[in-house]
Design a protein around this nucleic acid. Sequence first.
DNA 1: ACACTATCCTGCAGGC
DNA 2: TGCCTGCAGGATAGTG
Length: 289
Amino acid sequence: MPELPEVETVRRGLAPVMEGMRITAVEQRRADLRAPFPERFVERLRGQRIDRLTRRAKYILVGLDGGETLVLHLGMSGSFRIDEETPGQFHHPRSNNPSHDHVVFHLSNAIRVTYNDPRRFGSMDVVRTAELAADPRLSQLGIEPLGADFNAQALARVCAGRSTPLKAALLDQRLIAGLGNIYVCEALWRAKLSPWRGAGAIARKDGTPGLRARRLAEAIGAVLAEALEAGGSTLRDHRLANGALGYFQHHFAVYDREGSPCPRAECSGIVARVVQNGRSTFFCPVCQR
DNA sequence: ACACTATCCTGCAGGC
DNA sequence: TGCCTGCAGGATAGTG
């Protein structure tokens, strides 16, 4: 799935065509994705004017003028496609098999926004905006790593006292919200920290940040910022070719690079793959300690 | 409270 | 060529 940078890229791609527009019709082509659609899904959206698109962790929040918010999650394989409301539709090669087009939003600007999700791990829900903050999916989320209050101190605080490996801690959305398997691997590599190291070891005994917490916080920020930058350029390119939003090509230092030399010039290590909590971890056993 | 597993689903790559 | 296996960017219910 799209992790935070991909989700933010999708939000930035959708916002200009959706904000301020009215939803004229919704095609809901099945009863569920990962979870059932909410009651009266189509009726609650039809006729609503879209206020603003925001993001919290990997959720896209579509504010509606009637006091409700459409809560979107792309799961592992969700993507959106933007196209004009014209009859002659064209197919995108691969990955956009039209049989996985589960929801189509028709907008007042004659734009059609189609949600495609082969694995159907994504979700769509409609929640009263006033109750959004109390929604368990959002209220349990940890620090926003691109937010103003994310720093070494905040990172040390959530890691302090935990014996679970750093890899698992960084994937835990209740501690830090938005990282996924790729960017956790990339951030740990950048910070030269072993994925096996206990999370608590990056904080001092009193919970204040040490050198490792500072390195890791910097690495997380940098890795996400670079990915966002890559997403931004892909967005511009994609906009010309087709309207597909969801994934973009980005070069990774260690993710999916088992057997390749560690990209750090001064390091002679070879990228290894291990499994932690059932997920692949890619790392350099030489420079990550 | 915490940590770990199994599971939802389809597509694709690799081995035979 | 086809068949089989394992694996994939996530979240969460269930277990110990």
